[in-house]
């Protein structure tokens, strides 16, 4: 047993890995929320339900249609993005001019409906989803045994988060998006189709949640309430990070996953609450959030 200063390195690195994996999901989900918030100024309460939907679609695709994991990883986010586009077009847009609290309540209603439908169809106990054959097994590292699928989660979510950041911060499309965040009227005046960009942004932000759901299917059991519990944590993370910056959302998500993992090792009783406690501390010290811009 490798120990250092009385710390069991096997157990610690194991929890760190779990933390990084949770952090990857937090990062994907809060990134989606931040992108949507940037342009639409709304919080999508259904983000957790869409994550759940992603996992269920992957499960259904495999069991009903024989679509394997790799195809699901591409197809499911596209399908969920299309659903989100319909939601934006027919439900969210009609109340775009109203107080943003209404859109929060609207998406909360959507989340309740989705969760209710899937509880009705599949019951509340979880369904298993097999790790794809290419990623089963693991690698032995000096400190720990690293299951391949877990490594894959971290790598692919970093790639997806990183390229999203790159597109938004470094490309022309991203420049439109950022300009739309600052001043949509002026953008419209320059002849750019802002409503279209808004719809696509909503679709993309939600598709990220669907993507996270497919990734999560093999590690967590696929259940109707998998989304709601993670979403409240992601809300706390969004408050901690502040939604002013895309990079900030990604970093805060990963960081909080690691904090949670460390807490699981050092003081397991607090592991469920540590992120909320961090939120309290951030509210006391820097109410706008670590990366927040507003006063």
């Amino acid at each position: 047993m490798a120990t250092f200063l009385g710390i069991n390195l096997f157990a610690l690195s194991g929890q760190l890995l779990v933390g990084l994996i949770n952090g990857s999901f937090y990062a994907l989900l809060s990134l989606g929320l931040a992108i949507i918030f940037g342009l639409l100024k709304i919080i999508n309460f259904a983000q957790g339900a869409m994550y759940m939907l992603g996992a269920f679609f992957a499960w259904m695709a495999l069991n009903y249609m024989g679509i394997n994991y790799w195809a699901a990883l591409i197809l499911v986010p596209i399908v969920i993005g299309c659903i989100a586009i319909l939601i934006e077009r027919f439900l969210v847009r009609p109340i775009a001019g109203e107080d943003h609290l209404y859109s929060l309540l609207l998406t909360f209603g959507i989340a309740l409906v989705l969760q209710g439908v899937f509880t009705h169809l599949f019951g509340s106990s979880g369904l298993p989803y097999k790790i794809p054959a290419e990623l089963s097994g693991g690698t032995k590292l000096p400190f720990m045994y690293l299951p391949n699928y877990r490594a894959w989660i971290i790598v692919i979510s970093l790639i997806v988060c990183g390229s999203t950041w790159w597109v938004i911060e470094k490309t022309k499309l991203g420049a439109y998006l950022r300009a739309g965040t600052e001043n949509p009227q002026l953008m419209q005046g320059f002849g750019i189709n802002v409503p279209l960009i808004t719809t696509l942004t909503f679709g993309f932000g939600v598709a990220l949640a669907g993507f996270a759901g497919v990734l999560a299917a093999p590690v967590y059991s696929v259940s109707p309430d998998m989304g709601s519990s993670v979403l409240i944590v992601v809300f706390a993370i969004v408050v901690i990070g502040g939604m002013g910056s895309i990079g900030g959302a990604i970093l805060t998500g990963l960081l909080m996953g690691v904090v949670e993992g460390l807490t699981k090792y050092f003081y397991p009783e607090a592991s469920a609450t540590v992120i909320f406690l961090v939120m309290v501390i951030v509210l006391l010290i820097k109410p706008a959030g670590l990366f927040g811009k507003e006063a």
């Binding site: 439900l91 609207l106 209603g109 959507i110 409906v113 989705l114 969760q115």
Partner: peptide, 19 residues
């Protein structure tokens, strides 16, 4: 079983048409 679905639908209808 339908209770959450119905509550969710009431939410959606209230926000869209019955504010």
């Amino acid at each position: 079983n339908y209770i959450h679905i119905i509550m969710g639908l009431i939410f959606i209808v209230c926000v869209l048409a019955f504010r």
